[in-house]
Amino acid sequence: MKIWGMVLGGFPRSRYARYALRDRERGVIPFKDDVEAIDRASVQVIGAQLAAGLPVVVDGMIDWHDIFRPFVDAWRNVTVDGLLRYFDNNFFYRIPVFTGEPDPREYVTPRRVLRFKEVADPATLKVVLPGPVSFAFMAKNNSGLSNEELAEKIAYILRDEAKKAIEAGASLVQVDEPFLADIDATRDHARLAAELVNKIVEGIEDKAIVSVYFNVPEPSVFEELLNTKARYMMVDVVDAPGRAEKLIRGTGFGSHTPVIGAIDARRIIDDKPSFVEKFLKMVDAGVDEVVVTTSTWLDLIPFRYALRKVYVLGRIVEELAEKNGYEAYTIWR
């Protein structure tokens, strides 16, 4: 069995990136300086992923205020409103407000891929997109469309986004649907999500990941989501390990390559290899590939500990590969 590691999503800001953004907001420094500071922080986090041997890396999305914001900024007919708690985190996102059918002024991810793919070499870049169901159902919808119709419109934009990112050189496209792990998520949400993900990743199914985190989805919800054609399926097993185990043993990953979110991205203590191993053992009989990842984005912990988590992730993948006779896939092998 082949095993490899990747970071699920964005990184926290380095101190200097934080200062640069603040100074730019205050008008103390020009736009260019703030972009350069963000670029330097991005290079830092890409470097950390390379040092851990990760074959697929993210640019860190250092400048994103939350998962929706860059898309809100890039589309017409959507703006932002007040703050709302982002799931069970002590972090708040700005509520997107749709006032009409969203319409892209520009694409968010392709130019990032072009900017960072050389820095990422010899690894390749993954891009992360907000799932259309999470986007639509966590927004304020004054568009005149139903939430379902709005999600579909979003999916059409994200389909072009994904296609262009791959053309720019991204190796993977990840669609995040954390809303499906929410206590209010239903089968219908999951059915819609699966259908829309299939639209987004049409033609690139083999390079597509769907991820669900912050909690374990209900089995009935997850079953529906398994109907997506994306090759990889990610589940957060850290937040409620007992329920995660039940889901994996009961429902499983269907025909998808499991992506196990076993490196705790919300706590800073080092992860135990035995915890990760336990979940690998649950899936390793039936599959020829497993991915180990962080339980969510790394942006909810301080910068230095995010770097530490990347190191721990790389180390655990290698250690468990050696111990269990798996084939470790890193930038060195």
Binding site: E25, F91, L300, P302
Partner: peptide, 16 residues
């Protein structure tokens, strides 16, 4: 604590 984000570019020091 060390700095973690609350929203946008606003941070607080989460105790350790």
């Amino acid at each position: 604590g060390d700095w973690v984000r609350i929203f946008d570019n606003v941070y607080f020091r989460k105790p350790i």
